[in-house]
Design a protein around this nucleic acid. Structure first.
Lengths: 339, 339
DNA sequence: CTGAAAGCGCTTACAG
DNA sequence: CTGAAAGCGCTTACAG
């Protein structure tokens, strides 16, 4: 069953395909096309169940109405939720989205960008990896619409929507300190990503301003490889050896999940033996016993803002638009893990 | 900066674009194109950083090398992992994937199918909703390649890859019974989906074969709306009222998460007060205290099998291929929640 | 060994 | 008020 094309309709009606195209695109009136013929076209199109070939349309129009979302790993719950929100928002504008995972590997990111540009995606939403500056600059130079999400590359001026990592962390750590947990440890992933740097800084400044000394030894930066084991080590070191900390701040969901597992393995109780707070929120955190105090990011809003900025830029492709930087607040959700 | 096209290269070299196309597609030899000219083309293409416009290629070739994955909700951890696995497998064949969420709504599924067909995706991997038979049949009639995943529509003969829901559940419930938990409850979602039906049947048969009477009243089917509250109700009814059950089987991850939360809220302890087993596994289940016994689905394998079947069918579009049905075993992971 | 042409299905500027 | 033509960038069958 061959799909019906413009030509099929035109031939059956004995008119030109230009006319059919015009009618079907709702441009009959402005081109002063007769009402009777318009009617006929519309009717036949419906009968034949005509559906325009979007590939042909894209080629002609030079746009595909497809955007790409590139994140570290779409199976990570944080990015999965982002993916869903991006999908929903893009749908409102008639755009489809292609998801890709960079695995935090800048070269994979670069490769993905190339392939997707060949496929004529109209723009990108990117959660950039470390060392991706080169590729992002190339995008910028080639005037390809994109917006950075979750992380940005500070010196470079781009569209971005991120969260107030510094203040969110500062506030949460301050909360711990005021609860009396002077010895609050900080476990994070070692990476040069902007968001991670800001979270660390927020922690440091809170500790400093509260007059805690020697907090440098309360910090552990964990590597991506052997992630769970390394987090386990960090937890053990901080809680059992020299420092004897009574509270821990986890800089990401993945850190938090791995850390809580090893706290359980050590048979330590939350919050009696150790109070915890985590950046990022997740279903699991609400369901844990006790539920985990968390800094929730407004994922839906981040995603929809990013889509809006992107599509806006796509629509005015050639007029120079100002780059938009959005910083959203987080929500500090106090649960039983820290009181 | 306009992208360089075949014509640009042809013009600069004073040859035809046919020749350039042939060379760039590695068909120089079989078309007996001179070595020197081939070299030149390759060199210039590299210099100009030529990247073929895949849209034009798609239009000409009648295929887009894009597949679509339609699931209930891509932000659900189960489907998020599936998404990632599909992405990775498709990548091996040079295919990209568009993700879409049906929200378990058959009409949305139908709409998605239409839109994506217009965009000339080459095929679909679909986790069908209830009442989607009509749309799936249409796909089949129009000879559009697709494979069903996670759930199938039994009377209809299609490609599918699912898990052995019946035996997995039977085995797990039997395990419970043998541990002495004769009063094992079953909480599931009310839906006519094949996988849910099989799980329920597995439970029933296990109970029956073990000679447990009156297990009908140990079953709760929960509705999608007010999901968490309804699961909470079911948990409370089963554990606190008439039956006084001491064990619970959760038919899905979402049921399990919600149920465990309400068990915690009731201040009941797992496994001392109530033993639990859940279909589906997740990070959270490993990290809970105590860790939850679970039936793990081989998501990566399901996904890669589905992609392989689909792409195979796409490649031989017009030769009638036999439909492939794959049923994969699950893994029963015993943790502390049930002993 | 290489080029000219047709065509994928669409949209739009132009002519009448 | 409507049609013929050009063109988006590619691939491939055909001619020479």
């Amino acid at each position: 069953m061959k799909k019906t094309s413009l030509n099929d309709i035109a031939n059956k009606l004995g008119v030109s395909k230009s006319l059919v195209s015009l009618v079907l695109n709702g441009k009959a009136k402005q081109n002063r096309i007769g009402d009777e013929i318009s009617e006929k076209v519309l009717k036949l199109a419906k009968e034949l169940n005509y559906q325009p070939n979007q590939i042909a349309r894209s080629l002609r129009l030079g746009r595909s109405e497809t955007i790409a979302l590139i994140v570290a790993d779409i199976s990570n719950p944080f990015f999965a939720r982002m993916g869903r929100a991006v999908e929903d928002e893009a749908d409102k504008f008639g755009f489809k989205v292609i998801f890709s995972s960079s695995d935090e590997n800048p070269d994979k990111l670069g490769e993905l960008l190339n392939v997707l540009i060949d496929r004529q995606v109209d723009g990108f939403i990117i959660s950039p990896t470390i060392k991706s500056k080169e590729y992002i600059l190339k995008l910028k130079k080639n005037n390809i619409p994109f917006v950075l999400i979750d992380r940005c590359l500070p010196p470079i001026k781009t569209n971005s929507v991120v969260v107030d990592n510094y203040n969110s962390t500062y506030y949460a750590v301050k909360f711990m300190l005021e609860k009396g947990y002077k010895k609050t440890g900080f476990i994070t992933v070692s990476s040069g990503l902007s968001n991670m740097k800001e979270r660390l800084l927020g922690y440091k400044d809170a500790m400093k301003n509260f007059g805690v000394r020697g907090y440098g030894s309360y910090i552990r930066e964990v590597d991506y490889k052997n992630f769970n084991e390394s987090v386990g080590e960090a937890v053990k070191e901080l809680l059992l050896t020299q420092n004897n900390l009574r509270a821990l701040f986890f800089a990401t969901l993945r850190v938090g999940m791995a850390a809580i597992k090893s706290i359980n393995d050590l048979k330590l109780r939350i919050p009696q033996d150790v109070a915890v707070i985590s950046f990022d929120d997740a279903d699991a955190y609400q369901i844990f016993y006790p539920p985990i105090t968390a800094i929730a990011q407004p994922i839906d809003m981040m995603s929809s803002e990013a889509v809006k900025i992107l599509i806006n830029e796509i629509k005015q492709k050639n007029v120079k638009t100002e780059k938009t930087q959005i910083v959203l607040p987080t929500e500090f959700i106090i649960r039983e893990s820290c009181c």
